[in-house]
Structures are given as C-alpha cells and as structure tokens.
Amino acid sequence: MNQRRFFVPTAMVLGFVFLYAPIVSLIVFSFNKSKLVTVWAGFSTQWYGALLQNDQILQAAWVSLRIATLNATAAVVLGTIAGFVIARFRRFRGRTLFTGMVMAPLVMPEVITGLSLLLLFVAMEAALGWPAGRGFLTITIAHITFSMAYVAVIIQSRLSDMDESIEEAALDLGARPAKIFFQITLPIIAPALVAGWLLSFTLSLDDLVIASFVSGPGSSTLPMVIFSKVRLGVSPEINALATILVAVVAIGTIISGIFLARQRRARERDMQMAKADIAD
C-alpha cells in the first residue's frame, strides 16, 4: 500500500514536469536578450517588438484567425447535427457508414487527409470549375471536415449522458421535434457547443500538414510560416510568438473552466430545488 501511495504521486509529478518543462523553457527564453535562444544573456522584450514588425507573420496570423473562426462556426453546426444523428437516430440506412465517416477523421494520418482533399479539389476544379484555384476557401473546407468529427464526438457523448426523458416529456406535451431541439436539447448541451467551437478553432489554428497540401500561392497560414522558419533553426521571434499563443490558450482555458464550473454548480442547485419541489 505504501509503495503505491509513493509511486502514483511521483509518476504524476514527473509526468506534469515532462508536459510543462518544454513550454516553460519556451516562455523563459522568449525574454532572452541573446539571439542564441538557449544561452541566457539578460532580460529583454525586444523579440516581441520584432514580432510586431514582421509583416509575414502578422499577415499569416490574420489568415489563420479568419480561417479558424469560419471553420469553428461551420464545424459546430455540422458536427452538432452529426453528433445528434448518431446519438438519437438509432436506425437509418447507411448508419454504419455514417458513424465510420464521422469517427475516422479523428485518427486518419494528416498526410492522407491532406493529399486526398487536394486531389479532390483539383478534380473538382477540372470538372466543375469550382473551387477556382486553392487557398483560403479550400483550407477552410478541409478544416471543417476534420473539425466537425471532433465536435460530433463531443456532442454525441454529451447527448448520451443527457436525460432523454426531458425530450420525451416535451414530445408528449405536443412540441414539434424541431422546437424540442432548439428550446430544450440545444440549451442543455450549450457547454459542449462552446467546447466544440473552441476545440475546432485551435485545431484549425494548429494545422500545418493539411493546410500545406490544400493551400495555394499567397495563402500561407501561421503554422506554414512557423514551420518554414523553424526548419532553419531556433529563432527567438518564434519563442515570443509561442509565448503569446500559450498565454491566449491558458487564459481561454481558465475562463471556460470557471464558466463551466459555475454552470455545473447552477445546474446542481436547480436539480436540488426541483427535487425539493417534488418532495413538497
């Protein structure tokens, strides 16, 4: 027993050190004066200044942010429908194929997805004349396709946790299915929608491989620019950029964590009150 009490906490501490040490080192050396990233030469914020003057990075960041926003919004709509279909429609023709197509992008190697989508876009352009050329639009479509799979899995798992009797009660009271979905189901799964949107946003902002395949001239995303710089070696500007990204993600995660905790508490309170009502 003693052995186990010692082993698990030690493994956890080491595991978290392993997860965080590289990120901490990135942040620390972004404030380094020296251009040699790993030799400390004093505190400086000059690399942040240099970053703000790097037009290539700023432009790519703007492209990436727009793609990520569009992608997340579309992926939440499509992914929610897909997750709803898997969780609530138990029987329809082609269900196995459908669930397969929803789950597969989660594990599909990116090089395969990227190549196959590029070949599709080339074939479509030859046959239909749309999409003309590759770039912003094709990257967005590609990102929606894999992001919606993540959203669908989140929504599906949330829906199967949900108490279906609430929906059934509404149906018994004569509400139409569409009304039930928008007035009952959707508000209950709202936190999962937020989580899906945020996840899709970061997945899109993070993707290098698929975007490289389906992008065209003049539409480099942020990861593509970072990759071409990083291939040449470490650069303090990238450290500064990484620090900004980590800060944004950390703040976003903390805010959504507080929001979710508060909502859960509110829900528990409501349930207790409802139970008290019934007891009366």
Binding site: P22, I23, S25, L26, L198, L199, T202, L205, D206, L208, P223, I226, F227, V230, V234, I238, L241, A242, L245, V246, V249, G252, T253
Partner: peptide, 10 residues
Amino acid sequence: WTSFLIRVYA
C-alpha cells in the same frame, strides 16, 4: 490546446 508545432519546436 497549445500549438502542436510549437511544442515540438520547444
């Protein structure tokens, strides 16, 4: 949630 590319770069 932080960039995969950047974590590899670290």
